[in-house]
Simulated assay, not measured.
Amino acid sequence: MDEQARTTPHSNTGDGQRVTRSPWTLLVLCLYGAIGVAGFSALGIWQLERRVWKLDLIERVDQRLKAVPVAAPAPSAWPEI
């Protein structure tokens, strides 16, 4: 088997030599990766906070549904409501 057949097509230039990336390219790729991880982490934290808020809201609605009913205000009290 010859040398070119053993290398993958995306890792060489066609003549058997490997492609090396510049340090700036690697830095930019790492920065994009870090920004992506930070963004997805922020979205995950926001979702957890939102879940806590929604569970609290559901609990308050359930408490109001199970509460003793109160009489409706008289029509004379409607302007103050």
Rank of each mutant, 00 (worst) to 15 (best):
E3M: 06
E3D: 01
Q4L: 13
Q4C: 09
Q4D: 06
R6N: 06
T7G: 03
H10Y: 06
H10L: 15
S11A: 15
N12Y: 05
T13C: 08
T13N: 15
D15M: 05
G16H: 07
Q17M: 03
R18F: 08
R18V: 02
T20G: 04
R21G: 00
R21Y: 11
T25R: 15
V28W: 12
L29Q: 12
C30G: 08
I35F: 12
I35L: 15
I35Q: 05
V37P: 00
V37F: 03
V37I: 11
A38Q: 01
A38C: 03
F40D: 10
S41A: 13
S41P: 03
A42L: 05
A42P: 02
L43H: 07
I45A: 12
I45V: 13
L48D: 08
L48M: 14
E49L: 14
E49D: 14
E49Q: 14
E49C: 05
E49T: 12
R51L: 12
R51H: 13
R51G: 05
W53T: 13
W53A: 14
L55P: 00
L55G: 00
L55A: 11
D56K: 14
D56W: 05
L57V: 08
I58W: 15
R60S: 10
V61M: 09
L65V: 04
L65W: 06
K66L: 02
A67G: 05
V68D: 11
V68W: 00
V68K: 14
V68M: 11
V70F: 02
A71S: 13
P73N: 01
A74M: 04
A74L: 11
P75C: 06
P75S: 00
S76G: 02
S76W: 04
A77C: 01
A77R: 09
P79G: 10
E80S: 15
E80V: 03
E80P: 01
I81W: 09
